[in-house]
């Protein structure tokens, strides 16, 4: 039987060094897997694999030692537990996320909801090369946003609300960038030093800050054979619709300008970051 490896790979089947064995990559979004899915994954690994799974570096689950002739059976079995194969190859990959605002006290954005939204929008979208999104909830950067082709980091833009302030002095010390100084009962905020970490408002006993939750986006990260961190080209993004428009424009720019098999960073290097910045600023200001 002639094996169409490209089609298999598209469907998440990774050829193993052991002949006719495949490691099946599963579709995971934002690093969350339900108990029902886990039980089904365990059952399939026992029955069709060799009894173990591998957790990938980008929050996916792979079931190794799946036999070529059982692929359809395996897919059907996984489907019963709401588990689908993931993707490999030149397309949008697993959207990764930290736990974010829904769980983590430091979180500035709901990373999981955003991951689901991006997954719905872009799952398996074909592109000149792989394209990775990563979403981290705050400056602690547990999810390492800048490793990704497009990294999203949650932040909070703050504005002191004098009427609610009790002058306790906690925020001045909670701020790690020394953006806050208190003198004569007044707070001054040096916006050039603020990194939107939200530590001031989260530590403030009276929440004496007006807040805008938003996004800091980095572009062109790569962490494989070449290593380079993604860079920001636009200021803090204050609303989600704008963020999505920027993601759309980035993928469109990549599709239009990249050579086949060229990662986003190298497209930016070749075509010019200024050209990309110009496009994205247009959307940002639009």
């Amino acid at each position: 039987m002639a094996v169409d490896y490209a089609a298999l790979k598209k469907g998440g089947f990774m050829r193993q060094k052991q002949k006719n064995n495949f490691s099946l990559r599963l579709r995971v979004v934002g690093g969350n897997v339900s108990a029902v899915q886990l039980a089904k994954i365990a059952e399939v690994a026992e029955k069709y694999g060799d009894g173990h799974v591998h957790l990938t570096s980008r929050q996916s689950v792979e079931i190794p030692f799946i036999k070529l002739e059982q692929i359809d059976e395996v897919k059907a079995a996984l489907g019963e537990g709401g588990v689908e194969p993931g993707v490999c190859g030149p397309r949008v990959r697993t959207i990764t996320a930290c736990q974010g605002e829904a769980i983590c006290p430091s979180g500035c954005i709901d990373t999981y909801s955003l991951a689901k939204e991006l997954d719905t929008r872009y799952f398996a979208k074909e592109l000149p090369h792989k394209f990775k999104f990563g979403i981290t909830g705050c400056q602690n950067n547990c999810l390492k946003a800048e490793e990704n082709d497009l990294g999203i980091k949650g932040g909070i833009k703050v504005k002191w609300r004098e009427s609610a302030c009790i002058g306790c002095g906690v925020c001045e010390k909670a701020c790690r960038t020394n953006a806050i100084t208190i003198a004569d009962g007044k707070i001054s905020l040096d916006e050039s030093k603020c990194n939107y970490c939200g530590r001031c408002v989260k530590s403030c006993p009276t929440e004496a800050w007006d807040t805008t939750h938003g996004y800091i986006v980095s572009f062109g990260g790569i962490f494989g054979n070449s290593i380079s961190k993604g860079e920001t080209v636009i200021p803090f993004i204050e609303d989600k619709e704008k963020l999505l428009a920027i993601c759309d424009a980035t993928l469109a720019f990549f599709a239009e300008n990249a050579k086949p098999g060229e990662r986003f960073k190298f497209t930016l290097d070749r075509v010019g970051r200024e050209k990309f910045a110009e496009k994205i600023l247009e959307v940002y200001n639009g």
Partner: peptide
């Protein structure tokens, strides 16, 4: 401590 304890106590 001064960066984190006040916030933990608030929480």
């Amino acid at each position: 401590p001064v960066q984190n304890v006040p916030r933990s106590i608030k929480e």
